[in-house]
Amino acid sequence: MRVDRWETLVVALLAAVTVAASLGVDGFANGSNVGFLLLDVTEIALMALTMTLVIVAAEIDLSVASTLGLCCAVLGRLWTAGLPIETIMPICLVVGALAGALNGLLVTRLGLPSLAVTIGTFALYRGLAYVILGDQAVADLPPAYTSLATQSVGPIPLMTLLVAALAVAAGILLHATGLGRAITALGANEEAAYFAGIRVKRIKFWLFVASGAMAGLASLVFTFRYASARADNGVGLELAVVAAVLLGGVSIFGGRGTLPGVVAAVLLLAVVRNALILADVANEVLNFVTGLLLVASVLAPNLKVRLERKPVQ
Protein backbone atom coordinates (compact mmCIF):
# COMPACT_ATOMS: atom_id res chain seq x y z
CA MET A 1 0.00 0.00 0.00
CA ARG A 2 1.33 3.41 -0.92
CA VAL A 3 1.79 5.52 2.21
CA ASP A 4 0.50 8.94 1.43
CA ARG A 5 2.90 10.81 3.62
CA TRP A 6 1.44 14.16 2.75
CA GLU A 7 -1.95 13.35 4.30
CA THR A 8 -0.22 12.09 7.43
CA LEU A 9 1.75 15.32 7.55
CA VAL A 10 -1.42 17.42 7.27
CA VAL A 11 -3.06 15.51 10.11
CA ALA A 12 0.10 15.86 12.25
CA LEU A 13 0.28 19.56 11.46
CA LEU A 14 -3.40 19.93 12.39
CA ALA A 15 -2.76 18.23 15.74
CA ALA A 16 0.35 20.31 16.40
CA VAL A 17 -1.30 23.62 15.53
CA THR A 18 -4.36 22.75 17.63
CA VAL A 19 -2.21 21.88 20.66
CA ALA A 20 -0.03 24.96 20.21
CA ALA A 21 -3.09 27.23 19.87
CA SER A 22 -4.75 25.67 22.94
CA LEU A 23 -1.65 26.36 25.02
CA GLY A 24 -0.53 29.64 23.57
CA VAL A 25 -3.65 31.50 22.41
CA ASP A 26 -6.10 32.86 24.95
CA GLY A 27 -9.69 31.95 24.26
CA PHE A 28 -8.90 29.30 21.65
CA ALA A 29 -9.65 26.20 23.64
CA ASN A 30 -13.13 26.81 24.84
CA GLY A 31 -16.38 25.31 23.68
CA SER A 32 -17.89 28.40 22.10
CA ASN A 33 -14.76 29.21 20.10
CA VAL A 34 -14.43 25.68 18.78
CA GLY A 35 -18.13 25.73 17.90
CA PHE A 36 -17.68 29.02 16.07
CA LEU A 37 -14.59 27.75 14.29
CA LEU A 38 -16.41 24.66 13.05
CA LEU A 39 -19.55 26.52 12.05
CA ASP A 40 -17.58 29.18 10.21
CA VAL A 41 -16.00 26.64 7.89
CA THR A 42 -19.25 24.83 6.98
CA GLU A 43 -19.70 26.13 3.42
CA ILE A 44 -16.04 25.68 2.54
CA ALA A 45 -16.11 22.15 3.90
CA LEU A 46 -19.29 21.24 2.02
CA MET A 47 -18.03 22.50 -1.31
CA ALA A 48 -14.58 20.98 -0.72
CA LEU A 49 -16.18 17.52 -0.63
CA THR A 50 -17.48 17.68 -4.19
CA MET A 51 -14.47 19.74 -5.32
CA THR A 52 -12.29 16.84 -4.21
CA LEU A 53 -14.16 14.49 -6.54
CA VAL A 54 -13.99 17.01 -9.38
CA ILE A 55 -10.24 17.60 -9.01
CA VAL A 56 -9.48 13.88 -8.63
CA ALA A 57 -11.26 13.53 -11.99
CA ALA A 58 -8.68 16.04 -13.35
CA GLU A 59 -11.20 18.84 -13.74
CA ILE A 60 -11.89 21.94 -11.65
CA ASP A 61 -14.96 24.00 -10.78
CA LEU A 62 -14.12 27.63 -10.05
CA SER A 63 -17.76 28.70 -10.27
CA VAL A 64 -18.89 27.17 -6.94
CA ALA A 65 -18.90 30.41 -4.94
CA SER A 66 -20.73 32.23 -7.74
CA THR A 67 -23.24 29.39 -7.88
CA LEU A 68 -23.70 29.82 -4.14
CA GLY A 69 -24.32 33.54 -4.70
CA LEU A 70 -26.79 32.79 -7.49
CA CYS A 71 -28.75 30.40 -5.26
CA CYS A 72 -28.76 33.00 -2.44
CA ALA A 73 -30.16 35.58 -4.86
CA VAL A 74 -32.85 33.15 -6.05
CA LEU A 75 -33.74 32.42 -2.44
CA GLY A 76 -34.00 36.13 -1.57
CA ARG A 77 -36.03 36.93 -4.66
CA LEU A 78 -38.53 34.10 -4.20
CA TRP A 79 -38.85 34.83 -0.46
CA THR A 80 -39.70 38.49 -1.11
CA ALA A 81 -42.17 37.25 -3.74
CA GLY A 82 -43.92 35.39 -0.96
CA LEU A 83 -43.16 31.73 -1.68
CA PRO A 84 -42.98 29.40 1.33
CA ILE A 85 -39.40 28.65 2.37
CA GLU A 86 -40.04 24.90 2.13
CA THR A 87 -40.68 25.37 -1.60
CA ILE A 88 -37.73 27.68 -2.08
CA MET A 89 -35.13 25.39 -0.55
CA PRO A 90 -35.43 22.54 -3.09
CA ILE A 91 -35.56 25.16 -5.85
CA CYS A 92 -32.17 26.46 -4.69
CA LEU A 93 -30.72 22.95 -4.88
CA VAL A 94 -32.12 22.55 -8.39
CA VAL A 95 -30.74 25.92 -9.48
CA GLY A 96 -27.32 24.89 -8.17
CA ALA A 97 -27.56 21.56 -9.98
CA LEU A 98 -28.56 23.31 -13.21
CA ALA A 99 -25.62 25.70 -12.93
CA GLY A 100 -23.37 22.65 -12.49
CA ALA A 101 -25.06 20.92 -15.41
CA LEU A 102 -24.23 23.84 -17.70
CA ASN A 103 -20.58 23.58 -16.65
CA GLY A 104 -20.72 19.85 -17.23
CA LEU A 105 -22.28 20.19 -20.67
CA LEU A 106 -19.72 22.74 -21.81
CA VAL A 107 -16.87 20.57 -20.58
CA THR A 108 -18.07 17.17 -21.81
CA ARG A 109 -20.06 18.01 -24.95
CA LEU A 110 -17.90 20.80 -26.33
CA GLY A 111 -14.65 19.42 -24.95
CA LEU A 112 -13.65 22.75 -23.41
CA PRO A 113 -11.19 22.83 -20.51
CA SER A 114 -13.05 23.17 -17.22
CA LEU A 115 -10.65 25.88 -16.04
CA ALA A 116 -11.79 28.15 -18.88
CA VAL A 117 -15.46 27.13 -18.68
CA THR A 118 -15.79 27.73 -14.96
CA ILE A 119 -13.87 31.01 -15.04
CA GLY A 120 -16.54 32.08 -17.52
CA THR A 121 -19.46 30.82 -15.46
CA PHE A 122 -17.77 32.22 -12.34
CA ALA A 123 -18.52 35.66 -13.78
CA LEU A 124 -21.79 34.61 -15.41
CA TYR A 125 -23.46 33.17 -12.29
CA ARG A 126 -22.36 36.03 -10.06
CA GLY A 127 -23.62 38.52 -12.62
CA LEU A 128 -26.92 36.66 -12.81
CA ALA A 129 -27.18 36.84 -9.03
CA TYR A 130 -26.97 40.65 -9.20
CA VAL A 131 -29.52 40.73 -12.02
CA ILE A 132 -31.94 38.73 -9.89
CA LEU A 133 -31.54 40.46 -6.54
CA GLY A 134 -29.66 43.69 -7.25
CA ASP A 135 -27.77 45.01 -4.25
CA GLN A 136 -30.56 44.46 -1.76
CA ALA A 137 -30.20 42.25 1.28
CA VAL A 138 -33.14 40.03 2.18
CA ALA A 139 -33.00 39.65 5.95
CA ASP A 140 -36.50 38.86 7.20
CA LEU A 141 -35.99 35.11 6.91
CA PRO A 142 -37.96 32.64 9.04
CA PRO A 143 -36.38 32.37 12.52
CA ALA A 144 -37.01 28.64 12.66
CA TYR A 145 -34.42 28.13 9.95
CA THR A 146 -31.94 30.83 10.91
CA SER A 147 -31.71 29.43 14.42
CA LEU A 148 -31.47 25.87 13.09
CA ALA A 149 -28.41 26.90 11.09
CA THR A 150 -26.62 28.11 14.20
CA GLN A 151 -27.87 25.49 16.64
CA SER A 152 -25.48 23.22 18.48
CA VAL A 153 -25.59 19.75 19.96
CA GLY A 154 -23.36 20.23 22.97
CA PRO A 155 -20.29 22.06 21.62
CA ILE A 156 -20.76 20.69 18.10
CA PRO A 157 -22.81 22.79 15.67
CA LEU A 158 -25.66 20.96 13.95
CA MET A 159 -24.24 21.99 10.57
CA THR A 160 -20.96 20.29 11.42
CA LEU A 161 -22.87 17.06 11.88
CA LEU A 162 -24.31 17.59 8.39
CA VAL A 163 -20.80 18.14 7.03
CA ALA A 164 -19.53 15.04 8.82
CA ALA A 165 -22.32 12.87 7.45
CA LEU A 166 -21.72 14.11 3.90
CA ALA A 167 -17.96 13.73 4.30
CA VAL A 168 -18.39 10.10 5.28
CA ALA A 169 -20.67 9.56 2.29
CA ALA A 170 -18.20 11.24 -0.08
CA GLY A 171 -15.32 9.28 1.44
CA ILE A 172 -17.10 5.99 0.90
CA LEU A 173 -18.02 7.01 -2.63
CA LEU A 174 -14.45 7.94 -3.55
CA HIS A 175 -12.60 5.16 -1.77
CA ALA A 176 -14.89 2.17 -1.56
CA THR A 177 -17.15 2.11 -4.60
CA GLY A 178 -16.70 1.24 -8.24
CA LEU A 179 -17.71 4.77 -9.15
CA GLY A 180 -14.95 6.20 -6.95
CA ARG A 181 -12.42 3.87 -8.53
CA ALA A 182 -13.61 4.95 -11.96
CA ILE A 183 -13.23 8.63 -11.00
CA THR A 184 -9.67 8.02 -9.82
CA ALA A 185 -8.79 6.05 -12.94
CA LEU A 186 -10.20 8.58 -15.40
CA GLY A 187 -8.43 11.38 -13.55
CA ALA A 188 -5.11 9.53 -13.84
CA ASN A 189 -5.50 8.48 -17.47
CA GLU A 190 -8.70 9.40 -19.23
CA GLU A 191 -7.85 7.48 -22.39
CA ALA A 192 -7.11 4.21 -20.63
CA ALA A 193 -10.28 4.61 -18.55
CA TYR A 194 -12.30 5.13 -21.72
CA PHE A 195 -10.73 2.05 -23.31
CA ALA A 196 -11.74 0.11 -20.19
CA GLY A 197 -15.39 0.95 -20.80
CA ILE A 198 -15.69 3.66 -18.15
CA ARG A 199 -18.26 6.27 -19.21
CA VAL A 200 -15.85 9.15 -18.82
CA LYS A 201 -18.06 11.96 -20.06
CA ARG A 202 -21.15 10.85 -18.18
CA ILE A 203 -19.25 10.64 -14.90
CA LYS A 204 -17.66 14.04 -15.39
CA PHE A 205 -21.03 15.60 -16.21
CA TRP A 206 -22.60 14.30 -13.01
CA LEU A 207 -19.62 15.43 -10.96
CA PHE A 208 -20.23 19.00 -12.13
CA VAL A 209 -23.93 18.62 -11.34
CA ALA A 210 -23.03 17.39 -7.85
CA SER A 211 -20.63 20.29 -7.38
CA GLY A 212 -23.37 22.76 -8.34
CA ALA A 213 -25.99 21.12 -6.14
CA MET A 214 -23.57 21.18 -3.23
CA ALA A 215 -23.06 24.90 -3.79
CA GLY A 216 -26.86 25.19 -3.65
CA LEU A 217 -26.90 23.40 -0.30
CA ALA A 218 -24.06 25.61 0.95
CA SER A 219 -26.08 28.67 -0.12
CA LEU A 220 -28.91 27.63 2.23
CA VAL A 221 -26.51 27.22 5.17
CA PHE A 222 -24.82 30.51 4.35
CA THR A 223 -28.08 32.46 4.04
CA PHE A 224 -29.66 31.13 7.22
CA ARG A 225 -26.43 31.35 9.19
CA TYR A 226 -26.02 35.06 8.46
CA ALA A 227 -29.81 35.57 8.18
CA SER A 228 -29.11 37.48 5.01
CA ALA A 229 -29.63 36.59 1.36
CA ARG A 230 -27.45 38.78 -0.85
CA ALA A 231 -26.05 38.51 -4.36
CA ASP A 232 -22.51 38.89 -3.07
CA ASN A 233 -22.78 36.04 -0.57
CA GLY A 234 -19.64 33.91 -0.54
CA VAL A 235 -17.48 36.06 -2.82
CA GLY A 236 -14.00 34.53 -3.03
CA LEU A 237 -14.90 31.24 -1.34
CA GLU A 238 -13.89 29.20 -4.42
CA LEU A 239 -10.24 29.96 -3.70
CA ALA A 240 -10.56 28.81 -0.09
CA VAL A 241 -12.23 25.61 -1.32
CA VAL A 242 -9.58 24.84 -3.96
CA ALA A 243 -6.85 25.73 -1.47
CA ALA A 244 -8.19 23.28 1.08
CA VAL A 245 -8.48 20.49 -1.50
CA LEU A 246 -4.93 20.97 -2.76
CA LEU A 247 -3.55 21.32 0.75
CA GLY A 248 -5.31 18.04 1.51
CA GLY A 249 -3.01 16.27 -0.92
CA VAL A 250 -5.26 16.05 -3.97
CA SER A 251 -3.17 16.26 -7.13
CA ILE A 252 -4.10 19.22 -9.30
CA PHE A 253 -3.38 16.90 -12.26
CA GLY A 254 -6.03 14.45 -11.11
CA GLY A 255 -5.98 10.78 -10.25
CA ARG A 256 -4.69 11.13 -6.73
CA GLY A 257 -6.17 12.32 -3.44
CA THR A 258 -8.03 11.21 -0.34
CA LEU A 259 -11.13 12.58 1.34
CA PRO A 260 -9.73 12.36 4.91
CA GLY A 261 -6.74 14.43 3.76
CA VAL A 262 -9.07 17.15 2.48
CA VAL A 263 -11.13 17.17 5.70
CA ALA A 264 -7.91 17.54 7.71
CA ALA A 265 -6.79 20.38 5.46
CA VAL A 266 -10.12 22.21 5.81
CA LEU A 267 -9.75 22.00 9.59
CA LEU A 268 -6.08 22.97 9.50
CA LEU A 269 -6.81 26.14 7.53
CA ALA A 270 -9.72 26.95 9.86
CA VAL A 271 -7.68 26.44 13.03
CA VAL A 272 -4.73 28.49 11.76
CA ARG A 273 -7.01 31.30 10.73
CA ASN A 274 -8.97 31.27 13.98
CA ALA A 275 -5.87 31.14 16.18
CA LEU A 276 -4.17 33.98 14.32
CA ILE A 277 -7.30 36.14 14.56
CA LEU A 278 -7.54 35.48 18.28
CA ALA A 279 -3.86 36.35 18.64
CA ASP A 280 -4.60 39.71 16.99
CA VAL A 281 -2.46 39.02 13.96
CA ALA A 282 -3.09 41.40 11.07
CA ASN A 283 -5.27 40.20 8.20
CA GLU A 284 -2.42 40.55 5.69
CA VAL A 285 -0.24 38.16 7.66
CA LEU A 286 -3.16 35.77 7.79
CA ASN A 287 -3.44 35.64 4.03
CA PHE A 288 0.31 35.26 3.83
CA VAL A 289 0.26 32.19 6.08
CA THR A 290 -2.61 30.62 4.14
CA GLY A 291 -0.74 31.26 0.90
CA LEU A 292 2.43 29.76 2.30
CA LEU A 293 0.63 26.56 3.26
CA LEU A 294 -0.84 26.36 -0.21
CA VAL A 295 2.43 26.82 -2.02
CA ALA A 296 3.96 24.20 0.24
CA SER A 297 1.14 21.79 -0.53
CA VAL A 298 1.51 22.19 -4.26
CA LEU A 299 5.31 21.98 -4.12
CA ALA A 300 5.67 19.09 -1.72
CA PRO A 301 4.26 16.30 -3.89
CA ASN A 302 6.34 17.54 -6.81
CA LEU A 303 9.49 17.52 -4.76
CA LYS A 304 8.61 14.05 -3.53
CA VAL A 305 8.14 12.79 -7.06
CA ARG A 306 11.41 14.34 -8.18
CA LEU A 307 13.29 12.78 -5.33
CA GLU A 308 11.74 9.36 -5.88
CA ARG A 309 11.93 9.17 -9.64
CA LYS A 310 15.46 9.03 -10.80
CA PRO A 311 15.84 10.69 -14.16
CA VAL A 312 15.59 8.26 -17.05
CA GLN A 313 18.79 8.49 -19.12
Binding site: T177, G178, R181, A185, N189, A192
Partner: peptide
Protein backbone atom coordinates in the same frame (compact mmCIF):
# COMPACT_ATOMS: atom_id res chain seq x y z
CA UNK B 1 -6.04 -4.96 -25.92
CA UNK B 2 -4.97 -1.65 -27.44
CA UNK B 3 -1.86 -0.75 -29.36
CA UNK B 4 -0.46 1.75 -26.87
CA UNK B 5 -0.03 -0.15 -23.65
CA UNK B 6 1.11 2.76 -21.52
CA UNK B 7 -1.42 5.29 -22.70
CA UNK B 8 -4.49 3.22 -23.58
CA UNK B 9 -4.03 -0.09 -21.87
CA UNK B 10 -3.02 0.85 -18.35
CA UNK B 11 -3.43 3.56 -15.78
CA UNK B 12 0.26 3.64 -14.93
CA UNK B 13 -0.15 5.22 -11.48
CA UNK B 14 -2.61 2.59 -10.29
CA UNK B 15 -1.64 -0.75 -8.80
CA UNK B 16 -1.62 -4.06 -10.63
CA UNK B 17 -4.80 -5.27 -8.93
CA UNK B 18 -6.66 -2.04 -9.56
CA UNK B 19 -5.71 -2.07 -13.22
CA UNK B 20 -6.99 -5.61 -13.54
CA UNK B 21 -10.10 -4.59 -11.60
CA UNK B 22 -10.81 -1.67 -13.89
CA UNK B 23 -12.81 -3.71 -16.37
CA UNK B 24 -15.02 -5.20 -13.67
CA UNK B 25 -16.20 -2.08 -11.85
CA UNK B 26 -19.77 -2.03 -10.61
CA UNK B 27 -21.68 0.90 -9.24
CA UNK B 28 -21.92 -0.08 -5.61
CA UNK B 29 -19.47 -0.90 -2.86
CA UNK B 30 -16.29 -2.66 -3.89
Amino acid sequence: VPEDRRQQGLVMDLSIERNIGLTGLKWGLL
